[in-house]
Design a protein around this nucleic acid. Structure first.
Lengths: 179, 179
DNA sequence: TATTGTTATACTCTATAACTATA
DNA sequence: TATAGTTATAGAGTATAACAATA
């Protein structure tokens, strides 16, 4: 039963690609006074934003899986590669991690030989982090895979559509700058 | 220090609106043979998709907070409101929840008087779930707030831009249908 | 044998609090 | 006092395994 739920409207999703948060659909009962008709989630841009982002994230995870990298550890490694000598605290500020939570991430990246710690001569509290050659190579490989993933994600869009989508998305997230 | 990291490029973010996963930027060193230049994350549509989705989700959480509703419980309630008599297992299939995880969600929604359980005369294993008037009203209020949130999220876009954004996003997430 | 609702449990991600050593 | 790195811990959210009742 429940074939009546189709299509399913989504706001959240699990790791398997399945979707959560269904919503109203077709055959809307005529709005009654005092019980107005609900908006359909499928009308909301946010609904499609969510689904597109879910597909992106899933593809990203898959693209990085064989490198044994997930998004946050890659973010940390990328910060080190692009900013050699950066401190852990600065990474946390830059990418919004809590200081407590970068410890285990760095421990694993260090154990894999992807970066080295060095004492900061100017401040004995801080450790300066430097990428190893292996770390740089893994980062480059990861970013290549992200690019390939993106090409697959957007395969239904033309070049100009991709540019327009990027432009519109930038306006969406930059809209909070005036908050 | 670290003013050099600007702008920060993001792939993941925490609950506070801060961002994670910075990326390369400007002044790219000339690509050397065997050490090719990395893509800039800010060039990736997925980067902006992620940031836009983050802003959307945060606004959604904020919009629902005073109703003591989060995305998944609202999804479940919405399924009941839009499909009176639905079973918990069918909700789970529709929105991608594991059966084990809907139990506590239903317990809370039930305690708040938002729906009622009724035995299914055709199958004694299943409980049919029906929304109460309170549940319907809360759902309507929640969806109104989601609509208000959307208006704020997209305030920088014109009507035609919103329509175009929705069209492009649909092409992105529907691109996985041929997989 | 398969399904429903349920309990117990584990794992990931993220949050706070508190410690130590430095500044 | 403020900050860096660290530890411990707690809370979401989501995953699996197993059970009793029913089909």
């Amino acid at each position: 039963m429940l074939y009546s739920i189709n299509p399913v409207h989504v706001l959240v999703a699990d790791d398997t690609g399945e979707l959560a948060m269904a919503a109203p659909h077709k055959t809307a009962p005529k709005p009654e006074p005092g019980e107005e008709r609900l908006e359909f989630l499928a009308d909301l841009v946010g609904y499609h934003l969510r689904r597109a982002s879910i597909r992106d994230m899933q593809g990203m995870s898959a693209a990085l899986e064989s490198l044994s990298l997930r998004a946050v550890p890659l973010s940390v490694l990328l910060m080190i590669v692009e900013n050699p000598g950066i401190s852990a605290a600065d990474i946390c500020r830059a990418i919004g991690l809590k200081r407590a939570n970068i410890v285990s991430i760095l421990a694993e990246l260090e154990q894999r030989g992807l970066f080295l710690r060095e004492a900061d001569p100017n401040d004995n509290r801080v450790q300066k982090l430097f990428p190893t050659r292996t770390g740089k190579e893994l980062t480059a490989e990861a970013l290549e895979r992200l690019k390939d993933h993106e090409d697959h994600l957007l395969c239904a869009l033309s070049g100009s559509e991709r540019a327009e989508l990027r432009r519109l998305l930038m306006k969406v997230w930059q809209g909070d700058e005036g908050d």
